[in-house]
Every structure is written in C-alpha cells, then in structure tokens.
Design a protein around this nucleic acid. Structure first.
Lengths: 357, 357
DNA sequence: TTCTGGCACTCTGCCCAGCTGAGTGCCAGG
DNA sequence: CCTGGCACTCAGCTGGGCAGAGTGCCAGAA
C-alpha cells in the first residue's frame, strides 16, 4: 500500500501503472489463505512461490507479507514462523478474492436424489442437515421452516373429555402443533363442529401472524353461553402461535469438530456448549440476511465461545421467499469457496423440495 | 501410618480368621475404584492406605493388589505405576461393592420442580435430558415414549381437498403423528364423519400394535363404493403405526465429553460419531432390561466406538410399566453410585410427570 | 500363616542443553 | 522496484541426567 502509485517506466510491464502491487499483494494473501487452509500450518514465503506461480522471488513476497501484516491481514505466531491469516484477512479473502465454488453436476444430482427420498418435514430437515454436514465436513445447522411465514392449512379440534380439547394446527409447510385446551364448561359436538368450521373458514390460508387479528371478533358470533369456551380456545391458539415462533433447529456433524486442530479441548469445549444452546444457534442464524449468503468470521460472531469459528449461512424457502435459515459452523480456517458452494446448493434444493411437497 | 499396627496386643483385632483376605481385597478394589474415579490417576499402595483407613500396611495392600491384578480386576499402565481398574474391576464394583447413592431431598425437590415446568411432551423430554446431563455431568440420552406401549387416544381425519385427507393420531402419551392420505376417490363429509366415529369407537384405547387386528374388518362395514377409500386410510394408518416405531431420541451434554481425558481426540471422536447415529443409541437403550437399571461397562458394549465408555440406563414410564428408556453415557471411570442415583431419580420423576399429564 | 518394614529396582516425567531447519528482515546490487 | 545473499531468531526435537513414585521381594515379627 505504501508504494501504491509510485512512478514506473515499465513499458514492458503489461500493467499500465495504477494496479501494480496492490494486485499482487492480494494474490499473495489469496495464496496464503489457500495454502493455510490446506496444510493447517503457517505458510512461508518460499513455499508460497513454489506452490503458486507468482512470478516473483521469495524476497519480494516477504516484503508483501510484511505490508500485509502491517495492515493486519496476516500474522506470525512467532518470529521466524510462517504467516497465518487473521480474521480480517479471511474477511478480505471472502469479500474480494474468492468465488463461490459451484457443485459439480454429479454432486447436484446426488444432493437432489438424497433429498427427494424424504417422507415428511422432519425427514426433509434431518436429511438436509446430514447432507450438509457430509458435504462440508463440518457442523451443519438447519432451522425448521418458520411459522411466521407459514400459512394455516387447517385447524382441528378434538374432544378428549367433555371439558378437554386438543387443538391441532397444521401449516402449509407441513408442520403440526398441538395443544391441550381446558375449557371452563363442557363443549358439545355441535359447538365444536361450528367452531371448527368457523376457525377454518376465517383463518384458513392466513399467515400465522395475522391469525389473531382475523379471529379477534370470533366470540361475538357465538351464543353468550358458549363464548367463554370459544375465548379459551382462541387464547390457547394465539399462545401456540406466539410461543411456537420459538423455532426449532436440527444439527449434525459434531464429530467433525475433532478435525478442528491439535489444541483441542480448549477450542472444542465452548463450541459444543454453544451448539447445545438452541438460543445461541437461533440468534446465529437469525442474523443472516434474508436471502443473501452471510459469512461471519471469528470475532465477528457475537457469541464468545464461537470466536474461533466461522459461520456460513443462508435463507432457504419454497418459492422466492425464505422461510428459514441453514448453515454450517467450522473453524475460521475453512475452505470458504467450497463451503459456500455447498451451502448455497443445499439451500436451493431444499427450497425446491419444499415447494413441491 | 507405617507403624500402624505395630505395638498392640492383637487380641483387639476384631477379625476372627475366616473372612480374612477376600473381604479385604474387595475393600482394596473398592478403594482403588473410588480413588481413581476421583483423581483420574493410577493409584498406588501408599496413597491408598493414607486415604482409606484399611488398617494394614502398604506392603500388604501391594500383595492384595498383586492378587487382584492376577485375577484381572486391576492393571498397571507400566511397571512402577499405580493401578487402575479394568472393565472387570468396575463390573465387580458395580455388582457387589457399590450402593446406589440416593439423591438428597433438596435435589429431589429441584428435579421435580424443574420437570413440572414442562408444557408438552417435547418439553418434558427436553427438560429431562438436560437435567440428566447436568446432574451427572455426562452425556444424557432420553428416548421418547414409545408408540408400542402407548394406546390410541384419538384418531382424527381432516379433509384438505376432496381427495386429500390428513390423518392425525394422538396417543395417550401425548404424542401426535400426522400423515397425508391420497384417496382414490372423493370422500364426502358424511363418510368422513362415519369413518372417524368408527375408527375411534373401535381403536380408541387400544395398544398401538393391536390396532391393525382390531380394524382389520372395518372396510366390510361400509358401502362397496366407499371401501377403496377406507382401505387407503387404513393402509396409511397401519404404515404410520409400523414406521413410527422408529423411535426418536434426544440427547444433551455432549460438551461434557471434553472432561473425558487428556488423550482426547482419539477417545472423543468415535463417541461423537456414535451419538449422531440414532440407530446406535436406540440399540444401546434397547438392550436395557425393562425396568431394572442396567449398567454396561467398556467392552460389554457391543458398539466399538463406545468401548471406553459406560452406559447407565433404565426404563421409565407412567404407572408401573415402562414406556421408554433413558440413560447416560460417560467414561468407564465414572462415579457409578452417583450416576445411578441420578438416573434412577430422574426416571422416577419423569414417570410421575407423564402419569399426571 | 499372615502381616510388616526395609531395600533394591524400574520406569515415567521433567529439566536442561545443544542442535537443526525453517523462516524472517535487511541490504546492496541489478 | 525486484532480487539474491546473509545474518539472525526461534520452535521443536534429541539425549542425558535427575527425582519421585511405585513396585516386588524377602526376612522377621505376630
């Protein structure tokens, strides 16, 4: 960066004058990241020029590295060791130096085929998360399709005892929620049928968040004697809607954590703890921009236990809107292009599968 | 301590002569297990007599240890190291030397209180597994109440489109299963109501495995024109019953694996892998005797990846019959009495909670 | 017989020193 | 502005020596 615009005769040098060294430094950074991800060992100048044809000598590379270190993109564990990228270095790599690596056609076929075997929503999610863990060889996380974006497919009321009902809510994403309802007074079959019909008539097809508004005045349509029971049912229904926004998550591939590094116990412990906290995972995915792929690296992650990991996440959904998120968690020293490619591909195919079913 | 028994007219020695060494050797084994579990380090003769008042000298203990080693209950990592128990040693300890350590009253209250906060079956299981992991500081596994032992509380049929139904099965344990049914012909509301009534009339209260037998002749009770639809519904119902015997499992506390030992990656890896295989876990719990507590130690476990772990499991259920299993997985060097106490207590309380709800 | 104290022995773990090799930073010359 | 050369640094390995824990065995006491 210091020598950026220096004067240069250089008619031979194909580069006019503006883009000179910055470009090469970026190439050096890219090479460092690639090598380090591959070998997991600090990479030195000599090895770099040998493995990538940078067209310059180790000494030159050393100068570039010096500059890169100055600016905080790389860092040496000790004097006289090679360099490793910093979080900032990975960030630059992801933003400007890497291209998402698309899946090969056979891989795509395999993904699609594997997901198509699913029989219900649980199975879709389970297969997705396993697939993602396998493809990336990291920890995969998949959020169940959110209720917020879903619509009501059907509401069912079942009488268990005269005063005890079971309320079942079925969404268009195939999710089913059930709740017990204790009514203040016995509920007859006729009332039940009436209520069932009205509920479905009014709320069927609604987005879940809109349901309370739509059903607000429902009790008014019933005999005064029946209103308490109706209100109770509605209360429980609304509760279920609100509470169940507490979303569910599935994860797989924790065994891949063992590939993290040699300094193990210290690293892996907090990660395992984080993974058990659904809340943490939900927040992690929640921060993902809706449809664009998000990469958070090391200290960019708010949760301290995950400060030595990176998270690649993206929304997925049936149709054009995303209904939930999925992603993977791995060491900051991960293969970003490959991981991003896998995440993107899986998200797409899950979306398709959901749209079809 | 060396001079312990030196000068004393030995008429005082309370031991006659018959029960002599065998008994003391067992005491030595017990002491070794206890110390090793506490310190995680091979235990030597001197330390033993210091920490437990065995009333004999280290030299004597050494002889006993020699005998115990001969018989395979303990083993030395190297010459001139202390002894550690073998799987066989732990087995003897569990069978004859240890008493299940009951929970203290405050602990019981805490357990009960924590479990009582649960709102539905998922929540009960989730709370149970977390609780167990916390209490034992190990990996906890809880199987969802099995469908096999459950009975039908209600079967609901919902018409989504003229030819598409949704079948919902509710069990007495609060579990809900739903299936889509594609009927060969449109199904009217009248038929639907009739079918629903007959299904519940005949199968309500039945054990799930008996349902197919009970409903076998159902189609005969309908108009010939309706029989195909009825048969389809039954097929799907039976499928759901059979398939969903594929039981679900929840686990927690994997972060506790990091306390396993120093030789980490090697030990933890296969365990994490095993834990991701529901099949393995199910088999593990499946081998548990129905209601009695089962302890499997090290190589007694069929699955190779878990050969350095022990599993303590027990059935739980509402009422007197067990409907599912739960347990913990930890290093063979675990606190058996404490773990067994926790597992037993939690199983009891979950049973109570289930019975009440 | 059974236990005990004493003794010699073995072996791991640790510390220290010295060496090697990778990698750097700097400099003078192209 | 790049390059080759050179001196320097430092992590990691190796080997010797030391200390401590623990054992096994034995002869003598109860």
């Amino acid at each position: 960066m210091p020598d950026d615009g220096k004067p240069d005769g250089r008619l031979i040098d194909p580069r006019p004058s503006a883009r000179p060294l910055d470009e090469r430094r970026l190439a050096v950074l890219r090479a460092i990241v690639q090598d380090y991800v591959g070998t997991e060992e600090p990479v030195g100048s000599k090895a770099l020029v040998e493995r990538h044809n940078l067209g310059v000598s180790p000494a030159t590379v050393r100068n570039d590295m010096s500059a890169l270190e100055e600016e905080g993109y790389i860092h040496q564990p000790h004097t006289s060791a090679g360099r490793i990228p910093t979080d900032k270095g990975y960030r630059l790599f992801v933003d400007r130096l890497a291209e998402v690596k698309p899946m090969t056609p056979p891989e795509r076929r395999a993904i699609r085929h594997f997901l198509e075997g699913a029989v219900d929503l649980d199975d879709v999610v389970a297969r997705t998360v396993r697939l993602l863990a396998q493809l990336t060889r990291q920890v995969a996380v998949v959020q169940y399709p959110s209720l917020t974006r879903s619509t009501v497919r059907h509401i069912e009321l079942v009488s268990l005892t005269p005063t005890k009902l079971m309320l079942v809510l079925i969404t268009n994403t195939g999710r089913v929620e059930q709740r017990m309802v204790d009514c203040p007074a016995p509920v007859g079959e006729a009332l039940l049928a009436d209520l069932r019909a009205k509920l479905n008539g009014m709320a069927g097809g609604c987005r879940l968040p809109e349901v309370p508004t739509v059903l607000e005045d429902l009790p008014a349509g019933f005999e005064p004697a029946d209103r308490p029971a109706v209100s109770t049912v509605l209360t429980v229904l609304f509760e279920a809607l609100a509470e169940q926004n507490e979303e569910r998550i599935m994860l797989a591939g924790t065994a891949n954590l063992t590939r993290f590094g040699h300094d193990f116990p210290l690293t892996i412990r907090p990660v395992l703890e984080a993974l058990e906290e659904q809340v943490v995972l939900l927040r992690l995915l929640g921060e993902t921009a809706d449809s664009a792929m998000t990469v958070r690296i090391g200290h960019e992650i708010a949760y301290e236990g995950l400060n030595s990991t990176s998270v690649v996440s993206v929304g997925y959904g049936s149709g054009d809107q995303s209904v939930a998120k999925l992603g993977v968690i791995g060491p900051t020293r991960m293969d970003y292009p490959g991981t991003m490619g896998a995440v993107r591909a899986v998200a797409r195919y899950v979306g398709q599968i959901l749209a079809e079913s």
